[in-house]
Computed example of a mutant assay.
Amino acid sequence: MDVREAVQTRFTCRAFRPTPVPLGKVADILRLAGRAPSGGNLQPWHVWALAGEALESLKAAVRAHTAAGQFFEGEIEYAIYPPDLKEPYAGRRFRNGEAFYTALGVARDDHEGRMRQVAANFELFGAPVGLFLAVDRSMGPPQWADLGIFLQTLMLAARAEGLDTAPLEAWSLWPKTVRAHLGMPEELMLFCAVALGHADLEAPVNQVRAERAPLEEFATFRGF
């Protein structure tokens, strides 16, 4: 699979098959992702890869809370979205959510159904592997951008291996629980989890593809 195909076929998978992913393949993906560029070659990313009982134990710890209707713990360490999201960003987010819940057959007024789907984030949508990404708290926006480059490289490397992913910032809402289970040092901030595995391509939710803005909406060309 070349890089163009990997980019074109990558999507946020929200239903995985339970097929295990071998340790060697996960290590190869992370090793390749480690080739991602970073300013000053700081390589500010830290990764924990979990599978089997180690992953189930962490999911169970969060599940005990989500089953009771609790979807975050304590003070949120960073805002996933700006508090006053303006256009065109707010519209894009709304349409994405609308397409997603429509595919699931969950109505807008089905609060229980929507909460079940929120909780599914913390089950990693059934993926057999969970990757947890963190960055040192002393780092600034440029290094967070570097972490994003690493994340994208990781997801494309997974596609090259025929695997699918879901980057899940929702896991940042459980930093204390994740830190305790992973032995993550306090100086690191949890950014997200990444579900990794084989997509269940028959699941209706995996038929959804988020819209993309046309080139002329985000790019300006001069001097050509």
Score class of each variant (00 low, 15 high):
L133I: 04
L133N: 01
L133M: 09
L133C: 02
A134Y: 00
V135C: 12
V135R: 01
V135M: 13
V135K: 01
D136C: 03
D136E: 11
D136L: 02
R137F: 07
S138L: 05
M139E: 12
M139W: 10
M139R: 15
M139Q: 14
M139I: 06
M139Y: 14
G140K: 10
G140R: 08
P141G: 09
P141R: 09
P142N: 06
P142K: 05
Q143H: 08
W144T: 10
W144L: 15
A145F: 06
A145T: 09
D146V: 02
D146E: 08
L147V: 15
L147C: 15
G148T: 13
G148W: 04
G148Y: 09
G148M: 10
G148E: 09
I149W: 02
F150Y: 11
L151Q: 09
L151A: 11
L151F: 00
L151Y: 00
Q152A: 10
T153I: 04
T153D: 01
L154Q: 04
M155Q: 14
L156Q: 04
L156S: 01
L156D: 01
A157H: 02
A157G: 12
A157I: 08
A157K: 04
A158P: 01
R159I: 11
R159L: 11
R159C: 13
R159N: 11
A160C: 10
A160P: 04
A160D: 12
A160Y: 09
E161L: 07
E161K: 15
E161V: 11
E161D: 05
G162W: 13
G162E: 15
G162C: 07
L163Q: 02
L163I: 05
